[in-house]
Design a protein around this nucleic acid. Sequence first.
DNA 1: CGAGAAACTCAACGCATGATGAATTCCACC
DNA 2: GGTGGAATTCATCATGCGTTGAGTTTCTCG
Lengths: 216, 216
Amino acid sequence: MGAVRARDNERVTSAEHPASASPRKKAGRRPGGADTRQVVLEAARAEFAARGYEKASMRAIGRAAGVDAALLHHYFGTKDRLFLAALEFPVDPQLVVEQVIAGDPATVGERVAGFVLGVWEQPEALERMLALVRAAATTEQVAQLMRGFVLEELVRRAVVELDVEQAELRVELVMSQIVGLAMARYVIGVEPLASATREELLPLLAPTFQRYLTGA
Amino acid sequence: MGAVRARDNERVTSAEHPASASPRKKAGRRPGGADTRQVVLEAARAEFAARGYEKASMRAIGRAAGVDAALLHHYFGTKDRLFLAALEFPVDPQLVVEQVIAGDPATVGERVAGFVLGVWEQPEALERMLALVRAAATTEQVAQLMRGFVLEELVRRAVVELDVEQAELRVELVMSQIVGLAMARYVIGVEPLASATREELLPLLAPTFQRYLTGA
DNA sequence: CGAGAAACTCAACGCATGATGAATTCCACC
DNA sequence: GGTGGAATTCATCATGCGTTGAGTTTCTCG
C-alpha cells in the first residue's frame, strides 16, 4: 500500500565514477569453489520468510545472494522448486512427536510449549516456519502441503498415543494455537507478546496444550 | 505453483460466432440505478478474502463484479483504498469488548468463544476477517493496521476491565488463539477442525480463553 | 427539453515479474 | 595442456499488473 517498490536494475548508470557503485560482474564461472547453492538457499529462505511466496521475487533473492536471477533457474528450475528446496523440513516430525508424547502424560503440555518456544529460538527454523505460514496464507498449494503435513505427520502419529475422545480435533487445536502464536508474535508483531520471554509464555501456554491434549 | 493463470483478456476474438461468448459491453452509464458500488465492494471483499491483497487483482475484482477495472479506480482511487473500503469494520469493537467483559467473570471465556464462533457463521464477517488475516500475512502495512487495531481497540479497552497480572499479554494470547483458529479452519482447512460444529468447539475453547483472561 | 454531472468502457502506458537461450569464464580430468 | 562440462551473467520475451485519460451513454435537475 503505497509501498516503495524496489528497483529492478541495481546497476548505476552514471558515467562519473565508473568503479564506485557496482563493479560490473563478469559472466562465467567464478574462481574459488564457494558454495553458491547454499548461499542461494539461505537467501531464498530469508526472502520467503519475510515476504511470502508471491512477493519474494527471483530477482530479489538473487540480489540478496549476490547472484543473477537466471542462476536460480539454472539450479532449481522454477520458483516453486526453489521454494520447496528452501523449505526442506529440518527435523523429523516423527521423532518430535514421539519424544514429546513419551514421558509423563501429566506434563505433556509443558513439553509441547517448551519445544515450540525452543524451535523459535533457532533463526533458521523460525524462518522456515514463517515462510510456510506466510505462503500458506495466500497460496493454495502451500496450504494443501501444510494440510497434508499436519494430518499425516502430526495428527496420525499423535492420535495413536493419545487416550482421549476427539483426539484429532485436539491435536489440531494445539497446532492452531501454535500457528496463531507465530502470527501474533512474528507476523503481526503485537507487543508485549512479540517480546515476551520463554519464562513468561511457558506457564501460560503449557496448561492450554495440556488441557487440549488430555482433557480437563 | 504451476498454477493456471487466468487470462487477462476475457474477450473471445473469434469472428465465428460474434454474439456468443462475450456480448461486448457498451461504454457509458447503464440504465437502471443498480448499486454498482456495493456490488464492487462485495466482489472485492470476496476476492481479497480468497486470495489475499497482492494476488487479488483489480481486473479480477472487476470481472467478478461485471465491471471494467477502470471503474474501480473511478470509485476508490487506488487498490489500497478499495481494500480499506471493503474491510470497513462491521461491528464496533468497543461495544463487543464491553458486552463480552460485562457479566459473570467466571464465564467470560464462554462468552468470548461464543462470540467468535458466532461471528464466523456470518459469511460477510468471516470474509472480512479472512481478508485481513491473509493480507496481514504478506503485506506489512496491513500487519501494522492489525497491530494498531489489536492494541488500541482490544487490549487497551479490555485491560482496564481485567484484574490480572500481564493483562496485555493475556488478551493477546486470546487473540492469537482466535487468529490461529481462523488459519487452521479456513485457510489451511484441516479436518476435522474445519468442519467442527459450534457445540464441539465451544467446550474446548472456552476454558482456554477463561484461563488466559482470569488466570488459573 | 437542454446542460452538466455521474457512471461506465476502451485503449494504452510503464513497470515488474518468471522464464529462456546464448555467451563467457573457470574447474576437473585425461 | 587441452577439452568438456559446470557455473555464471546478459539480453530478451511474454505476460500480468495498477493506473490514467479520453470518449460515450445515461441520469438529474432546472
